[in-house]
Amino acid sequence: MKAVVMTAAGDPSVLQLQERPLPELQSDTEILVRLKAAGINPIDTKIRQRGTFYPDQRPAILGLDGAGVVEAVGAGVREFHIGDEVYFCNGGLGGHPGTYAEYATVEERFLAHKPKTLSFAEAAALPLVAITAWEALFDRSRLGAGQRVLIQAGSGGVGHIAIQLAKQAGAIVCTTVSTAEKATFVEKLGADEVIRYTLDDPIVRVMNWTDGVGVDVSFDTVGKQVLSQCFASTRYYGDVVTLLAPSPDTVWKVARDRNLRFSFELMLTPMLQNLAAAQMAQVGILRQCAQWVDQQQLTVHLAQTFPLEQAAEAHRQLEAGGFVGKLALTME
């Protein structure tokens, strides 16, 4: 099969298209998926830059998100059959091979049926960001109906899904964007208040919007000074959740003075720590999201697709930024 292999840590040029052996089923409950598309996420570029989580296992095939068709099943597989369309988030951290390839093996319990109304590329763009946004809003910060939430970078991969999930829960959404085009995009997703951070101070705008109280929940998808911004925008005894490690200049005093509940969201934890039950819970999120997609209550925005052999260029585009939504690789 063809696969994009990370030959060393470094710039996008370390991603090389190679011929690799077709993966074989290693257990009765494994499934061979003929991949049609792979989602591209910032974690992919970070692993490529600094090295994988398993440096003794090289070369590596990156890519956590995938969508495709079941090609073969182990004798113990019960829920899936040859020809089923599936999507998933699994592998790609340097241990189990990822989705930048024509085929991948996945344990049955980590697969979900693909949303029927999405293309394979759209479906492959959804898993990691949907799980991340869901866990951040509902598991970490316990967002509920009627609450006000600030979602930083609402036009990004995680952000644009988070807006929709928050609205699905009945929350009132404020979000930040950089341009008028992105403002229009998030308004169409249902954002109630949109802040152009290039024009206005988000803290001032949030406080004006909430009559000086602050939001119930702030979701930081950016890091650095944005986390301190979230602390200052959140009400006393509110919740702040971040996807990034705090920078040294984070203003923790504000968080302490406001008695904020602070959480990290790292959706990779179940895979990195072999927490099968937690990873199965993430599959439950994918099943629910698939239902909402097919009921037209959730959508994923795909900015651009690249053929598999252009994975390096896709990484360059992701690192350059400026686009709306997600990028994906396609195998056909």
Rank of each mutant, 00 (worst) to 15 (best):
K114E: 06
A180I: 13
D200F: 12
Q304W: 02
A112M: 03
A232Y: 04
D220Q: 03
D239S: 14
V149N: 13
D56F: 09
R256W: 04
D216T: 03
D11E: 13
L118T: 10
Q18K: 15
E135R: 14
F231L: 00
A281Q: 11
D211L: 11
A75L: 12
R48W: 08
A312Y: 09
V215K: 13
Y54G: 03
V69C: 03
W134Q: 09
Y197D: 04
P23Y: 03
P97M: 00
V204W: 07
D139A: 07
S228Q: 07
V86S: 11
Q49G: 01
K188Q: 14
M267G: 02
L243I: 06
R78S: 15
V158M: 03
F231N: 00
G51N: 06
V177S: 09
V240G: 07
A281V: 01
Q147A: 01
M280F: 08
T176K: 09
K167H: 09
C89N: 14
V70W: 10
P115V: 05
A101N: 07
I151F: 08
V33M: 04
V283C: 02
L15I: 05
I43A: 13
A314R: 03
G156H: 10
P202N: 04
G144E: 15
R148P: 01
D28T: 08
A303G: 01
E265S: 04
R20S: 06
Q49V: 00
V254P: 00
F306N: 07
V5P: 08
G322Y: 08
A130C: 11
T234C: 06
K224F: 08
G94Y: 06
S13T: 12
A37F: 04
L275M: 07
L227T: 05
M207P: 01
E135A: 05
M267N: 05
Q291A: 12
V77S: 13
E122S: 12
C89Y: 13
E122R: 12
I172G: 04
H81S: 14
Q152L: 02
F264H: 05
L62A: 08
A320V: 05
V4W: 01
A276Q: 12
I131F: 07
Q164A: 03
F88S: 05
L298W: 04
L308G: 10
E265V: 02
A145M: 14
A60Y: 12
E332G: 11
C174A: 15
G156L: 11
Y87T: 06
I172T: 11
A232K: 10
K188C: 02
P97I: 00
M1K: 11
D201G: 01
T99V: 06
R109C: 02
M280V: 15
E319S: 03
G39V: 10
K2P: 01
V173M: 07
K2W: 10
R20G: 01
V70D: 06
K188R: 15
A37H: 07
A38R: 02
S155V: 01
R316A: 13
S218T: 02
L302W: 07
L165P: 08
E181D: 15
Q296D: 15
S13F: 00
V73S: 08
A75P: 07
G76H: 09
F306L: 09
A37T: 10
A130S: 14
P127A: 06
T179I: 09
A314F: 01
L227Q: 07
G214L: 07
Q16R: 15
L275K: 09
G156F: 10
A311F: 06
A312N: 10
A145R: 15
R258K: 14
V86R: 11
R78V: 14
R148Q: 14
G223E: 00
I285A: 00
L308Q: 12
I161P: 02
A328K: 03
